[in-house]
């Protein structure tokens, strides 16, 4: 998995990024870079990070995600983590990871609903 394979889809003023199942550290860093560039290019107001295929959420990955959320916020966007698997959520909690105030949704659909409602309601970050 290299940075080129990461898909970033821009829909209206939102970005949809799908995280690969078992990314190495390099891919995770490349993902962050690509998200921030796309945020700027599309003047996006929100980011949906689809993590429904992610098998392992360790502390390095979690930290990078949290950093990305903060960077996206600084660029005026809100992030929703969508579709975390049940086993990954149990493990991440037991490992002691926390994602702070980052929003979550059961799937991409609900994440879009959430972001669109918020952006239309004028509640941006």
């Amino acid at each position: 998995m290299t940075a080129e394979n990461i898909s970033v889809i821009s829909l209206r003023n939102l970005l949809l990024v799908t995280v690969p199942p078992d990314p190495d550290d390099e891919t995770i860093s490349a993902l962050q870079q690509k998200i921030l560039e796309s945020m700027a290019r599309h003047d996006a107001r929100g980011l949906v990070l689809d993590i429904s295929t992610v098998q392992t959420l360790d502390s390095f990955f979690a930290r990078t995600v949290m950093e990305t959320v903060q960077m996206v916020a600084l660029m005026g966007g809100r992030t929703v983590l969508a579709g975390m698997r049940a086993d990954v959520a149990v493990t991440a909690t037991q490992l002691g990871l926390s994602i702070g105030a980052t929003q979550t949704a059961l799937d991409v659909d609900r994440a879009f609903d959430l972001l669109q409602g918020e952006i239309q309601g004028g509640r941006t970050a």
Binding site: D58, F60, D87, V88, T91, A92, L95
Partner: peptide
């Protein structure tokens, strides 16, 4: 499995 793999990753 996810617990064990995550510990291995750490």
């Amino acid at each position: 499995v996810t617990r064990i793999v995550t510990a291995a990753s750490e």
